[in-house]
Design a protein around this nucleic acid. Sequence first.
DNA 1: ATCGCAGCCTGTACGC
DNA 2: TGCGTACAGGCTGCGA
Length: 297
Amino acid sequence: MPELPEVENAVRALHAAGLPGQRILSIQVYWRSIVAGTPPAVLRQRLLKRKLLDITRRGKFILFHFSGGETVLIHLRMTGQFALQAPQTPRDQHTHLTLQLSGGQELRYRDARKFGRWQVTRAPQAILQRLGPEPLAKAFTLSVFAQRLNGRRRMLKTLLLDQAFLAGLGNIYADEALWLAGLHPQRRADTLTPPETLALYRAIRQTLRRGIRHGGTTLGRGAGHYASLNSRRGRHQDYLRVYRRSGQACERCQTPIRRVIIGQRSTHFCPTCQRLERRGPHQRTISKKIKSCLSSI
DNA sequence: ATCGCAGCCTGTACGC
DNA sequence: TGCGTACAGGCTGCGA
């Protein structure tokens, strides 16, 4: 579920809640496959009494940095989320791991589908090095992006979802970025012109920043939908331009948004603004609209 | 290098 | 209301 903007908001919420600086007094694991790499007992033993120094993000991973050089990598996958509660508050059925903190509260990891993973390691780089660049980092320049596209024959949609190509995009923001750039999701990556490469580069960064600014995307309600912390919903679902909007009018050209399956993932796009072939009837007007869309954000 | 598929799990939304 | 079906924001491992 959570993509870069959702993970970023979760990290910020944990900071705001005063997590860094606290010690781990005890740990309970209620569903063992949430803990990856080591048996749950090893995770407990290595974190007990440790101080949480900092919380950071890399792609869709959350990093808990502990005293003594231990790091916990947390991936929320589809339905992972955190709650910070008093120990006496009853646990709900989806709580699979809890940390008792020195401040008196309990950090609870909830995950309806149980796909999320916690892994303790002294060498997080060994795992994180497989990830592509961080799209919002200064080091991710247009020329870095252009070089990475070079020679890639895959469709844009599947390439953008590949975390080894670029870290942090998921199904929502990939569709949104392609719409903003005016590029068809099945376009082959190595056929982009320089202006198209620039448009995609800017669209990716603008789309992610906008998602962060709106607190992430929370679709639907109930168990398993995104929450930054303590069930707090995001607002970005009210700002989506194509994702889960099939049949509704494109805000640039009024054409109904289409939904297709690409790379086994549901994909939403505007068949007028995002053409595979170069020329269409209103292509000039659309190009202008795409340009103004890209610069106005 | 790239694609497609099964698997991991449970919940929600919707049609009848 | 109940039942069945489709679908879900991620990722890995496998064979082709």
